[in-house]
Amino acid sequence: MGKIQVKPEVCIGCHLCEIWCQVAHSKSKNIIKTFLYEKTIPMSRVVVEENLPLTFPMQCRHCQEPDCVSACISGALIKDSASGKVIHDPSKCVGCFSCVMACPYGNIFVNEKTREIVKCDLCEGLDEPYCVSHCPNEALVYVSDD
């Protein structure tokens, strides 16, 4: 597994990583369809933090020793030893939000409507994380472990 590296010095604060994250987690993966025609618009798993002029995107760091996994009461969050990813299994999740409070980066988000959490899955099933491939200034870089 690799990591998404953030370069705040070239982050232009456009928030397009958030937009493309939503597209990546939509049904159609088509930006116009996602926002204008699909019934539910997915939440973004990445958030651009701003204290102008400083801006930088943050998403799940897939920590070595994740506090969210330790805090999870139902075994819905696991640290996958093979891939190194922190994975969320919604079928086991009870919606206690202990992980939300435990995450030191504030990178687990609550979907108020469904009372479920969402977090970065490094765009499971796609070639490259959409936030990385669509950043207009290469402020997000995917660094592979191998």
Partner: peptide, 13 residues
């Protein structure tokens, strides 16, 4: 209007 998704990137840029 059939393309704008209100992402506000234009506003920020």
């Amino acid at each position: 209007e059939d393309r704008c998704i209100r992402c506000r990137a234009c506003e920020r840029q």
